[in-house]
């Protein structure tokens, strides 16, 4: 058996893989948060609940409608994104002129409502979701065993992250978006419908969260509280990376997932706190975050 630093390679790479998986979710979720924050100036506390809704939607569609994973991967983000658009129209648009803190409190309240409703309906226990037939099994790479589904999650989330980055930084629509972030009044004066853009941006961010939820369903159990603890870690990730840059959010997400995985190997007691400790250290050394501009 191969050993690295006295740790069997299977254990080391196994944790590294779990770290990359967690990192994919951190990246997808912090990306959504960053996109929403850029346009709406709101920290979307509901993000965790929307991730959970994505996982539940996939589970329910499989259970009751027989809709399989691949269709859910497309339909669920659109569906949950649409509920996001509804939330933006019903609530968020009314508080745009208020202090940012109200946005945080409002979305926190919405998260409580959603989580409470799901707990009432489905209880607190986790529900399993079958890995799609195409991705079952795995391959032995010699130094570790790589389950196919996990490889897919990492690859696909990288693609989604890159596509989002490309859409925002390299396309015409993305340039409108960035311009509207800087100066919405001026962009409106050019005849671009900024309020609609804001609504759609929120829907898109929520869709990303739901997509992460669908991808997470076969890995973690689907449960009403799966999002609320995760979102706090993602907040820490966002503080570490700073919300100024899309690429920063992606890189920080993956990097922290890996660091967390490695901590699990070398110092398991600290694995649940390591990201918060890193956040504290980053704040002491570089308050604006690794990729952030000073706020």
């Amino acid at each position: 058996m191969v050993e690295i630093f006295g740790i069997p390679s299977y254990a080391l790479f196994g944790q590294l893989l779990i770290g990359l998986i967690n990192g994919s979710f951190y990246a997808l979720l912090s990306l959504g948060l960053a996109v929403i924050f850029g346009m709406l100036n709101i920290i979307n506390f509901t993000h965790g609940a929307q991730y959970m809704m994505g996982a539940f939607a996939a589970y329910l569609m499989l259970q009751y409608l027989g809709v399989d994973y691949w269709i859910a991967l497309v339909v669920v983000p659109i569906l949950i994104g649409a509920t996001g658009i509804l939330i933006e129209r019903l609530f968020l648009q009314h508080i745009r002129k208020l202090d940012h803190l109200y946005g945080l409190i409002l979305t926190f309240g919405l998260a409580l409502i959603i989580e409470g409703l799901f707990r009432n309906q489905f209880g607190s226990s986790g529900k399993p979701y079958q890995i799609p037939a195409l991705l079952q099994g795995g391959r032995n790479l010699g130094f570790m065993f790589l389950p196919n589904y996990r490889a897919w999650v990492i690859a696909f989330s990288l693609v989604v992250c890159f596509a989002t980055w490309f859409a925002i930084e390299r396309t015409r629509l993305g340039s409108y978006l960035r311009a509207a972030t800087e100066n919405p009044a001026l962009v409106r004066a050019f005849g671009i419908n900024v309020p609609r853009m804001v609504t759609l941006t929120y829907g898109f961010g929520v869709g990303l969260a739901a997509l992460a939820g669908v991808m997470a369903a076969p890995i973690y159990n689907v449960s009403p509280q799966m999002g609320s603890d995760l979102i706090i870690v993602v907040f820490a990730v966002v503080v570490i990376g700073g919300m100024g840059s899309i690429l920063g959010a992606i890189v920080t997400g993956f990097a922290l997932g890996v660091i967390e995985g490695l901590t699990k190997v070398f110092f398991p007691e600290a694995s649940s706190t390591v990201i918060f400790v890193i956040m504290a250290i980053v704040l002491l050394i570089r308050p604006a975050g690794l990729f952030g501009r000073t706020v």
């Binding site: 503080v239 918060f276 704040l283 308050p287």
Partner: peptide
């Protein structure tokens, strides 16, 4: 640690620190 950032970040940092101490 927390007062090094303002506004919305302050809220997220305090939340994260509290979660750390929860663990």
């Amino acid at each position: 640690i927390a007062i090094r950032r303002q506004g919305i970040y302050f809220a997220m940092i305090t939340l994260a620190l509290a979660q750390m101490m929860y663990f």
